[in-house]
């Protein structure tokens, strides 16, 4: 057959198409992905949404929404039994744990920022970085209960130290630091150390190189480390249970209340809703602050 005849054969042929069955058979993994994708989102968010709805319902413990009210928010803020004409006072049973949790969260965030700023840039460049990194990240893989029991036994029974706010802060740092370090490593592993050489070459002392070059370029990592430190500390429960003396953090308060059989249980719905909303807002702010310039930074690092 000549080349021309060959070509003519294809030109003359009808356009070939898949049948519907063939198309579905070909596409079904994509539909499967989409379905599972939405289903997982539903599993994650539906209970939270349900909790939020019940927090403004008058009978949350029944599990049925409706008869909308802000009563539980009022109870949470000012305490039950203070509403009949008495002077409103802030409900210290909720606010004391909140203040303690905030304090711990800020301390943990600060510790995470400093530690990850000092360790993060060095780690990618030392000889035993693999084992070291694994060592730092190990607390991620050890169950929280195991880690917290061992911490408690070591300090309380081993060293005979009294638990208190210091031990809560320590435990929160142990828990949050791996996440903070990971967040820092995302930025610091891309850090071009030749920039420090260039600064030294231009006459900058080690101190100036640190403040003028390293800190500004690692800024997104520092903020991310602080953000993880804050959020993980604020929401931490297992370590807190063991490492507290009589202190009650907000998660501990929620945990105690949810196991109790008294009239303040519905407060949990309101409190959890507020914490969730605050966490979401904080996350957005943190992303904005830390990674607002992200696209620019990445581009700058690549082209530098």
């Amino acid at each position: 057959m000549t080349v021309l005849a060959e070509q003519t054969k294809y030109i003359g042929a009808a356009p070939r198409q898949l049948t519907l069955a063939q198309r579905i058979a070909e596409r079904w993994p994509a539909w499967g992905s989409i379905f599972i994708g939405y289903f997982v989102l539903l599993i994650i968010y539906f209970p939270i949404l349900w909790l939020m709805i019940l927090s403004v319902s008058s009978e949350p413990l029944t599990g049925f929404a409706g008869d909308w009210t802000l009563r539980w928010y009022d109870d949470m803020l000012y305490g039950t039994g203070q509403r009949e004409g008495e002077a409103y006072a802030v409900n210290s049973r909720v606010f004391d744990p909140l203040l303690l949790s905030l304090k711990l969260a800020f301390i943990t965030a600060a510790l995470c920022m400093v530690a990850s700023l000092l360790i993060g840039p060095i780690l990618p460049r030392v000889r035993f970085r693999g084992p070291l990194l694994l060592g730092y990240l190990m607390p991620l893989m050890v169950p929280g209960i195991v880690a917290s029991v061992s911490l408690f036994l070591f300090y309380r029974l081993g060293l005979h130290w009294k638990m208190g706010e210091w031990s809560l802060g320590l435990a929160h740092f142990v828990w949050a630091f791996p996440f903070a370090l990971l967040a820092m490593l995302v930025v610091s592993s891309r850090f071009d150390t030749r920039l420090l050489e260039a600064a030294a070459d231009l006459g900058a002392s080690p101190w100036r190189r640190f403040w003028d070059i390293q800190v500004p370029i690692l800024k997104p990592g520092i903020f991310a480390a602080g953000f993880f430190g804050f959020l993980l500390s604020f929401n931490e429960l297992p370590f807190s249970i063991f490492m507290r003396a009589g202190d009650i953090t907000l998660p501990i308060y929620l945990w105690i209340q949810s196991g109790a059989h008294n009239s303040s249980v519905p407060l949990i719905f309101a409190l959890s809703t507020l914490i969730t909303i605050a966490s979401i807002v904080l996350t957005f702010i943190a992303i904005k602050v830390a990674f607002g310039e992200k696209t620019v930074t990445v581009k700058k690092i690549r082209t530098a």
Partner: peptide
Amino acid sequence: TTTVFQHYALFPHMSVGENIEYGLKV
């Protein structure tokens, strides 16, 4: 002594002016 590097090593978080002035600033 100052060096002109093959990879430039310009500071990505500074403007052109800040880059040039850095040696004078320190």
